[in-house]
């Protein structure tokens, strides 16, 4: 196969997409805001709006379009597929090219219950949901481009308030409705601090109850995490939450309901009150 185009708004996503692209294509073009040297050619762009970027990327002739996996990356990717009227497979976890003309890729579907294997004739657009290895630095030819104006006007842009890096956290103390009240979140924060971890939460806790800021939401419509230890406190374990924690090494669940779905999806389960657990756990760890 000949050419692939790579885009991601973040550097790790870009490198990962480039790594996958080189495993398939002979020639890889990058598109980005920053001057990085991981592709044969790099189009340095001057705008950040999704439609402007998608317009430009779809004007590049290629067999494969590879994107990172942020929400923004995926919006652009789907727009490229729409503009070119070609197939789109987001969140791939494996990929192969068959007879040089078809992509066969796997992705997680049905809120994390299934892995679907999909087939798409080239050209095709994919986004990458797992690490596809390292990429080496290259002698990149850089070309600056001015993108077309966007149909969207950005009136205001605010950075999120909290700085918890859940996606890369090794230990996560996660809270659900069963924690009882917002005040009890302080106990979860205390435990996370002792363990050197971060606090996250289920969707209801973030969106309905407002106990935690939006960038702490774990699950399908939030962040997917992969810690070595995930402690789920008062979280019942709906599929939309479970899909976000599936890659955790060890899952601990504390819940009063022994029939909650989280119980079947955890390594260790304590049937009991999450607040009592937090107090006891903090006391025990402090004593050591």
């Amino acid at each position: 196969m000949t050419r692939a185009v790579v885009f991601s708004e973040d550097l790790n996503g870009f490198k990962n997409a480039a790594s996958l692209a080189y495993s398939i294509a002979n020639e890889v073009y990058g598109v980005g805001y920053n001057d990085v040297k991981y592709t044969d050619k790099l189009y340095l762009i001057d705008r950040t709006e999704e439609d402007s970027i998608a317009d430009f990327i779809s004007s590049i002739n290629a067999n494969l379009y590879v994107f990172g996996n942020s929400k923004k990356d995926k919006i652009i990717a789907a727009q490229v597929a729409g503009k070119r009227k070609i197939g789109y497979i987001p969140d791939i976890i494996s990929v192969e090219v068959s007879e040089g003309k078809k992509v066969i890729a796997e992705r997680v579907a049905y809120s994390g219950l299934a892995i679907s294997k999909l087939e798409c004739e080239l050209p095709c657009v994919v986004t990458v949901s797992k690490s596809f290895g390292e990429v080496k630095e290259r002698n990149t030819q850089i070309e600056r481009v001015n993108l077309k104006e966007s149909k969207i006007k950005v009136i205001e842009s605010k950075k999120a308030t909290s700085s918890a890096d859940l996606a890369n956290a090794q230990i996560i103390v996660s809270v659900g409705r069963g924690l009882g009240s917002k005040d009890n979140v302080a106990l979860a924060e205390e435990l996370a601090k002792i363990l050197g971890g971060a606090v996250g939460g289920s969707r209801p806790v973030v969106t309905e109850l407002g106990w935690l800021p939006e960038d702490r939401q774990i699950g399908l419509s939030g962040i997917k995490v992969r810690p070595k230890l995930y402690i789920a406190l008062g979280i019942s374990g709906q599929p939309q939450h479970l899909v976000g924690i599936k890659d955790s090494k060890i899952i601990v669940a504390v819940n009063t309901d022994k029939n909650a779905p989280i119980v079947d999806n955890a390594d260790y389960v304590i049937i009991g009150d999450a607040v009592e657990f937090l107090k006891t756990m903090i006391e025990r760890l402090k004593a050591k």
Binding site: K71, I155, A160
Partner: peptide, 9 residues
């Protein structure tokens, strides 16, 4: 979009 929030028109 997770890390930032925007007002668009």
């Amino acid at each position: 979009l997770g890390l930032n929030s925007e007002t668009l028109e």
